[in-house]
């Protein structure tokens, strides 16, 4: 569970770092990813892996289109406008999903379903293994992309100093669309990985709020921080469910969020004032 929070938080952070927008529709992109995958598997009988890939591609394209058509216009507007806009977009996505796929709850059959491995006396179902392995692979891929490829380094450059990136001939606007695509793709991956564990319905996206807590905990703007924050939130939830009275599990993330904002607003890995304007 923590890994999922981490992945969604990663999506938040990627977009925030590059464009200074906070995308509250991140969780709903996750929901769309899960639904698209479900649609391909159940309606069209596509294999799980192919549907997985299709879901990533479609949601990623959708993210890029979203940036090019809507979000590019609000760069430079007050944060408030952006927050309202993305929350609104999230609501539209949910409405779209309930019109297209209905508001029932679905299960997504996967190759991992109902299998389990015993590791040193602890039984882990393969669905959870898939989440953890998926997260690790994804992080490795993203890390390699941002460190070793020309486009990846250019994206870092564009987020560190937008003006200078323009001077270097880096097409900054296209970079931002690409960031949105990656971020949406990450959300879709998280959605598909999550689907077998938590079932698919249109409110899957509300996990985004907990992931937001994870991103804040990790220090908004820090990629490793978002993952660590996600895992931490996941663990806190787990222990809250086990040791605290019933009901604490679901509020634990927000309690942590409040505590972090009150005590250490920059988060665990955040740095204060490193951005020169």
């Amino acid at each position: 569970m923590g890994c999922i929070y981490g992945l969604v938080a990663l999506g938040f952070v990627l977009i925030y770092k590059a464009t200074e927008l906070v995308n509250f529709a991140q969780g709903d992109l996750l929901m769309l990813g899960a639904f698209v995958c479900y649609m391909f598997v159940i309606w069209y009988g596509v294999g799980y892996w192919a549907a997985f890939a299709l879901a990533i591609a479609i949601v990623a394209l959708f993210g890029a289109a979203l940036d090019a058509s809507v979000l590019r216009r609000v760069i430079g507007q007050p944060q408030f406008a952006v927050v309202m806009l993305t929350i609104g977009l999230g609501a539209i996505f949910r409405a779209f999903a309930s019109m297209t796929w209905g508001s029932e709850i679905y299960t997504l059959p996967t190759p991992f379903s109902a299998k389990a491995t015993r590791v040193g006396g602890v039984t882990i179902s393969h669905e959870y293994v898939s989440i953890i392995v998926g997260t690790v692979i994804l992080c490795a891929v993203l890390y390699a992309f941002f460190t070793y490829t020309r486009v990846g380094v250019a994206m870092q450059a564009a987020s560190q100093n937008q003006l200078a990136a323009y001077y270097m001939g880096i097409p900054v606007k296209r970079m931002f669309s690409l960031i949105w695509a990656i971020s949406a793709g990450v959300a879709a991956i998280a959605g598909v990985l999550l689907a077998p564990v938590s079932l698919i319905d249109i409110n899957l996206g509300f996990i985004g709020l907990k992931a937001f807590a994870a991103a804040v905990l990790g220090g908004f703007g820090s990629i490793p921080g978002s993952l660590v924050g996600g895992i931490t939130i996941g663990l806190i939830e787990l222990f809250a469910g086990a040791y605290l009275p019933h009901g604490f599990k679901d509020v634990a993330a927000y309690v942590v969020l409040l505590a972090v904002l009150a005590i250490r607003p920059q988060g665990m890995f955040g740095t204060v004032g490193r951005k020169k304007v």
Partner: peptide, 19 residues
């Protein structure tokens, strides 16, 4: 100056040749 502060010197130079 407006260099890319978190990239290495070499990466900065490579960005110059981005096009």
């Amino acid at each position: 100056r407006e260099v890319f502060p978190f990239l290495s010197v070499r990466e900065n130079l490579r960005m110059g040749a981005y096009t």
